[in-house]
């Protein structure tokens, strides 16, 4: 546990040691804020459905940018050799890194809270979907992070890590979308809609936090962390 904390602290601080983190947060907030307020006053409805609808597509590009460096940079610099010869278990390093990127994402999301506060001030929104939306955001974000972290362990090139993570996330996101579901054979529809990263998110976004959705996201996270452990072991064989 102490090792996870040590690695978590190093990685988390690492985000803020570079200006990239601040640029990242600023761009995220400006982009989401603009997309939100662009239609907010026209529709004149006090809810955040528009915000949460667009979020998976923003995550598609933002989350891989958070995770791309986590392993690739260690490989490129050669620091992996020191890290993996310290007395730490493989899974401690993975969880430390995963939780650090999770915390960074959480901070970014936390900074978007002025949006719901503004809505609460301007109108009387239904609070359920907003709270549900944020819970869903954190769960979905975790799944995106686990994918990105795993992909980062496959290469020493951060750009390659970014692109492959976007492709995999895009694939998982799009199979749950309506237009894909229309075009696949009927017997595949339940499977695809279950596997889609976005479909569970919109369920939670309605304000209904179902345990099945939580289990889905946790399984995606654990699955990719498991794959990550395999790639790390693969180094030794």
């Amino acid at each position: 546990m102490q090792n996870i904390i040590a690695i978590f602290k190093r990685e988390f601080k690492g985000y803020f040691n570079s200006t990239i983190a601040y640029i990242f947060i600023t761009v995220f907030l400006v982009l989401t804020g603009w997309l939100f307020f662009r239609s907010f006053f026209i529709i004149n409805q006090a809810d955040m459905r528009g915000f949460f609808a667009i979020l998976p597509w923003i995550f598609l590009f933002f989350v891989p940018a958070i995770t791309m460096r986590l392993w690739a940079e260690e490989k490129k610099l050669g620091t992996l050799e020191i890290l993996m010869t310290l007395p730490v278990k493989d899974h401690e390093v993975i969880f430390g890194k995963f939780l650090a990127s999770y915390a960074f994402l959480a901070v970014t999301i936390l900074l978007s809270l002025p949006l719901p506060i503004t809505i609460l001030y301007l109108g009387t929104p239904d609070k359920g979907p907003i709270i549900g939306g944020y819970i869903g955001t954190l769960l979905m974000g975790g799944a995106f992070l686990a994918i990105g972290l795993f992909v980062s362990s496959l290469t020493e090139n951060q750009i390659v890590a970014f692109i492959i993570a976007v492709i995999i996330s895009f694939g998982l996101l799009i199979i749950g979308e309506q237009f894909v579901l229309f075009s696949v054979p009927n017997w595949l529809v339940p499977l695809f809609s279950y596997l889609g990263l976005g479909s569970h998110f919109s369920d939670i976004g309605r304000g209904v936090v179902d345990s099945r959705d939580i289990i889905y996201y946790l399984s995606v996270i654990l699955f990719f962390i498991f794959l990550n452990m395999r790639t790390l072991e693969g180094r030794r064989w």
Binding site: R10, N17, L77, T79, E81, I82
Partner: peptide, 13 residues
């Protein structure tokens, strides 16, 4: 104690 080739370090630390 291990010093790998080229003395790799976390440059941002």
């Amino acid at each position: 104690g291990y010093l790998p080739e080229n003395a790799p370090l976390y440059l941002d630390m």
